[in-house]
Design a protein around this nucleic acid. Structure first.
Lengths: 168, 168
DNA sequence: TCGAATTTTCAATAATTTTTGAAAATTAAA
DNA sequence: TTTAATTTTCAAAAATTATTGAAAATTCGA
């Protein structure tokens, strides 16, 4: 398989995967493109390579920056802005994990705390089924929370240690 | 907060979460409704409680069954079909994990294997960046695969052991 | 400060996904 | 069988989400 074809495959598959991961297709494609680029790219580069409009690139780049997956880089003497993606896939995974924990798990847990205080007779099977479900989710959420923390923390260490190697 | 209000909140939030988890809003709502129901429900029950059409209930129930999260139950002497959801949230989580591994991770890994065989000079920085990215993902995927297996297996044991308790 | 290059915004449009509802198929009681 | 209850299907409609592109805003060199 030729590089150009392989690139296309990679970008399109990563895009399709993105939709399963809670980010939109184009955002994942932009990310994919940047992940396999040896050099920083401009918005125009991405427009050309992915065949999408300026506005689209711009918005998705902004989202990727919010997710902590892409950053702006300044190239001395250049007027245009350049962008690079985090290349370390473990870093990508922990970053996504962290963000989703913040955006999804934390608010869910807050709600469950409220819902577990529902009024009503615990003898009523309707009430009991509800409270049981909510408490189950709370317990699960707490455990998941800890597990994810361990993962993210261990990975931060791992990341730091890999990074350190580069400097010694 | 009253039960009816709490239920509504629960269903609507679980539905919103579903969209982040790769399943559609209504499917997640049907699942939520079944999770907090002490008794099996019919399609008509769900139509009434969620205000959705018969076809919609039917399709989403089918999907939930495919995901292994809901099952049909027969109530002796009743003509209609009844449905119950897996109530154990850990079981739900491992089931989803298993399915997503099968649907997302496995195909992704297969593709990466192909893509790592891209032709071209490894000295070319374009080729190198591509191969590095693909190999990084392969390594990551393999580790994730093992991790998920451990999770699912340990949980299967845990589930079996909880189940056993019911019978002794 | 000015003005060209570049980035950002956002209303309109396009594409995609979900939902409906009625017809067809299936099921099981009589 | 026949028939009425129930489930399933799927084309059309509605709702949602993503994309465009041009105008507005910003940035930076001269």
């Amino acid at each position: 398989m030729k590089l150009s074809e392989a690139k296309q495959q990679f970008i399109s598959t990563w895009g399709a995967m993105g939709t399963h991961w809670g980010i939109n297709r184009t955002m994942a494609q932009v990310h994919a493109l940047l992940m396999i680029s040896p050099d920083p790219l401009t918005q125009d580069d991405m427009m050309a390579q992915l065949n999408i409009s300026r506005g689209n690139v711009n918005m998705n780049i902004r989202d990727l920056i919010d997710w902590g997956l892409v950053e702006r880089v300044l190239i001395p003497g250049e007027r245009k802005e350049y962008f690079v993606a985090e290349k370390d896939i473990w870093k990508v995974a922990t970053q996504i994990t962290k963000e989703r924990k913040k955006r999804e798990l934390d608010p869910m847990m807050k709600l469950m705390d409220q819902l577990s205080k529902v009024e009503g007779d615990k003898k009523d099977k309707e009430v009991k089924a509800f409270v049981d479900a909510v408490n189950g989710i709370k317990k699960f959420g707490t455990q998941a929370d800890h597990m994810l923390d361990v993962l993210v923390k261990s990975d931060e260490n791992w990341f730091v240690s890999t990074l350190m190697k580069l400097f010694r």
